[in-house]
């Protein structure tokens, strides 16, 4: 299997460009970025609502976060669009300063790359009626029926869970149906990924998302392992966004509002 679907050209073009233009300066990336005035953000724009470039400029949750961080730093965000396979390559070869593209923290890559604080947990979560406590966990639901999208990651989680616990799995055709089954009373809870869950909640305001995730899939920005100054800046800016409520606002804009 290799990515032979067209986007590879973007990756290779980026790599070739960098190999031709890369210089061996000792200057830190952060200093270079400040002089340049732009923050080059690597991104695979095929992943809505985080990033999508439908023939034009990219838009999405990650794009807004990148723009907000750049603005706080007095910079302009510039997006380097590549396929997923090439993201780490464009970072490694210096074509991008960081990656902000729904990147899951991957401990296997930490020899070469460093991850920022997570800005979003995309893992599976529990949706229940408001009659249950917000802190409900799967272990509290022994013997109950749990709805899930057939074949989804949540389904795999439940299969694993059901091997240890008494649990009735109700596989349905979509995350929407799984959430609806909780509304209808056909299931006690639904396990869906964070994005699908939040999107589905628009239609089911009487339900709630449990605060204890079923599993954690943290999204974070990525920098080269030596770029500790840049990493510190990113973490500080993410903290600012979080503390000011701006991060929650961006997430809500893309996941909770009907217009998207």
């Amino acid at each position: 299997m290799s990515d032979h679907l067209g986007l590879r050209r973007l990756v290779m073009l980026s790599i070739c460009f960098l190999l031709l233009t890369a210089c061996g300066s000792d200057e830190s990336s952060w200093e270079t970025i400040q002089k340049r005035g732009t923050l080059r953000v690597g991104m695979d724009p095929t992943f809505p609502p985080f990033e999508l470039a439908d023939g034009g400029e990219p838009s999405g949750l990650d794009v807004d976060i990148a723009n907000a961080i750049a603005q706080q730093l007095g910079l302009r965000a510039e997006f380097v669009l590549v396929s997923y396979d090439g993201l780490y390559d464009v970072l490694a070869t210096g074509k991008a300063d960081l990656l902000l593209s729904a990147m899951v923290v991957s401990p296997e890559r930490t020899r070469d790359f460093a991850y920022s604080e997570s800005y979003f947990n995309a893992g599976e979560l529990l949706i229940t009626t408001r009659e249950l406590p917000l802190t409900v966990e799967l272990s509290d639901l022994a013997g109950q029926t749990i709805a899930v999208e057939l074949g989804s990651q949540g389904h795999v989680e439940l299969i694993e869970w059901a091997a240890r616990e008494d649990l009735v799995i109700l596989p349905l055709n979509s995350s929407d149906e799984a959430v609806a089954s909780v509304s209808d009373g056909a299931a006690e809870a639904a396990v869906v990924d964070a994005v699908s869950g939040r999107l589905a909640m628009r239609k089911h305001p009487t339900l709630q998302i449990g605060v204890v995730p079923v599993n954690v899939e943290p999204y974070a920005a990525v920098v080269r392992i030596d770029d500790s100054l840049l990493l510190r800046q990113l973490n500080e800016q993410l903290a600012l966004l979080r503390d000011s409520g701006k991060l929650a606002e961006i997430i809500a804009y893309w996941l909770d509002e009907e217009v998207h």
Binding site: L5, F47, F50, L52, L150, S152, S174
Partner: peptide, 21 residues
């Protein structure tokens, strides 16, 4: 020697898991 569909939740070239099956 290779065939199939992908069921990533949000990849634009993927289908739903049920569709994949």
């Amino acid at each position: 020697t290779e065939m199939g569909w992908n069921d990533h939740p949000r990849w634009t070239r993927a289908v739903r898991p049920g569709q994949r099956i």
